[in-house]
Amino acid sequence: MAILATAGRDNGRRRTLQKRKSGFSFAVPALLLIILFFVTPVLGLLLRSVTEPELGLQNYAELIGSGTYMRIFANTFLVAGVVTALSVVIGYPVAWALVVMPRYWSQVVFAIIILSMWTNLLARTYAWMVLLQRTGVINKTLMGLGLIDTPLTLVNNLVGVTIGMTYIMLPFVILPLVGVIRSIDPAILRAGALCGANRLQCFTHILLPLSLPGVAAGALMVFVMALGYYVTPALLGGTANMMLAEMIAQFVQSLVNWGMGGAAAFVLLVVTLLLYAVLLRFFGASRIG
């Protein structure tokens, strides 16, 4: 009897071990949350883009047909592209330096990067608003150094948006790149040098190609983030260079035009998910993050 009971319990345990294999039930709370408060609202918004003010695709037609909106699309891609390029070009040498630097100094640099990343987004943007003014510190310094005679217009235009966004995006390029460059085996480079390659050849033929997946992943990530950015363009940009996210917010908040807002959101969503799919396809889900 007792033996039977024990055996039964053991069987039960083994069963629980096996049952746990499925494990789907653990994901249910998260799944419910996502379906109820993420998938449903987003689909609801998309539905409104084809039902308001009446059934049809007229919102999309207006979006594509209007010069003003097309300019905003073009501007959004331009800003995202420039910010991505700048972040990669500036971020690459920093990531590289972080890998090879003496440990103490690389820790200091890491701390600075993390500090800037964790500092409240609005605080950083506010600082740039004041720094970049015509009468701000940067213009005053440049004029004091005799580099310029009249103050440059650095804010309320593309320059301001680019500076502010590059500032925010840099860590997102640097940190993943450090991991990629660190994982490169120095022996390969040594071998290259032994075969007579000079430093430039080593860089263009070995280091750069080996780190290219990291560069591409980081760049794509930054590009996607930049496309949908709202706060920084809204505060540092001018009336003539609105970005897509701002336009969506304006449709909904100021113009109360859910149809157009939904349509613009859908366009942004599709572009983002496409790029996201590319990212997943080439770099795997676990790499993002």
Binding site: Q250, V252, Q253, S254, L255, V256
Partner: peptide
Amino acid sequence: TDYGKIKAMVE
């Protein structure tokens, strides 16, 4: 004050 917000809230 935001006129869009007034309209949105009323609607």
